[in-house]
Amino acid sequence: MLTGRNAVVTGGSRGIGRAIVERLCRDGAHVVFNYATSDDAAEEVVRTVQDNGGKAWAIRLDLADPDAPEQLMEAAEAQLGGLDILVNNAALCLTPSLIADTDPAVFDKVMTVNTRTVFMTIRHAARRMRDGGRIVNISTANTVRLGPGISAYAASKGAVEQLTTIAAHELGARGITVNTVSPGATDTDLLRGTNQPQALEAVAGMTPLGRLGEPSDVADVVAFLAGHDGRWITGQNVRATGGLA
């Protein structure tokens, strides 16, 4: 259980992020999360958490703004009074584009949201997280299942995986664990908006468990790493893919 623990989740209004917020709150944590655009979606998450006896607060901040990560962490600490758990979930995943066709400005934006944000929130946590804390960074199976058109996204997430390993070594003496969770194909609006139905059916058929992942599948892994039972796991990349390497 996470009673008495304070958490920050980036990108917590939809999909996997929403599932993580709701799961951490269900386990007793108080959670601050950010969102970029939809007030209605964020308010629905807060309302759902409150209806189930939990506490969550939403902060509208677009992580494409380089100052937003530090603003989020400072606002969260002011609201919560301390920090025990950080989940870096927010990510920008655009329409696939070959390297030759990718606008450098698009590459820069993906790296800002997906990588710089993680660096900055970990930097804040390294200075101010309470001993015994937990950091979980969400990556992707696409760092090992590579293909054309995903250069910016895969590169940004590959960097996140390296930050995880380094931060685990830097923060381990304080009992702070740092891990990556790499989901496979997970049934979210983002996945369905960027893939044809037949492609999703094919991926589900290739998975040993015979289905797409659900956001709650990933949230449960995050909750384990964020809790007491995950205390001896650090610097690892847990591939929550349903067995699809």
Rank of each mutant, 00 (worst) to 15 (best):
V221T: 15
N179G: 02
A76L: 09
G193L: 11
A219L: 04
I20A: 07
D108R: 14
G54P: 03
L146W: 00
V144F: 06
F107L: 15
A91P: 01
T165P: 00
T37P: 05
R211L: 01
L209R: 13
T3C: 07
T180I: 11
S151K: 03
A152Y: 00
D103S: 09
N195I: 00
R192C: 10
G28I: 05
I135R: 00
A42D: 03
I138R: 04
D27S: 14
R123A: 11
L146Q: 15
F33Q: 06
D62T: 01
V218T: 06
M206P: 00
L2T: 08
M206R: 15
R130M: 04
S139W: 03
I122Y: 01
A141C: 12
L171C: 08
S139A: 15
R60K: 13
N88M: 02
L171A: 05
V144C: 09
S182H: 01
T37M: 04
T241F: 06
L200G: 08
P183I: 04
L146A: 11
T115H: 05
H30E: 14
Q162S: 15
G15S: 08
E22V: 06
V160C: 06
G184M: 02
V203P: 04
D101M: 08
N142Y: 12
V110M: 08
L212F: 03
G82D: 09
N179K: 08
A29T: 09
V118F: 08
Q236E: 14
T140W: 13
I59M: 13
F107Y: 14
F119W: 14
A152N: 10
R123V: 02
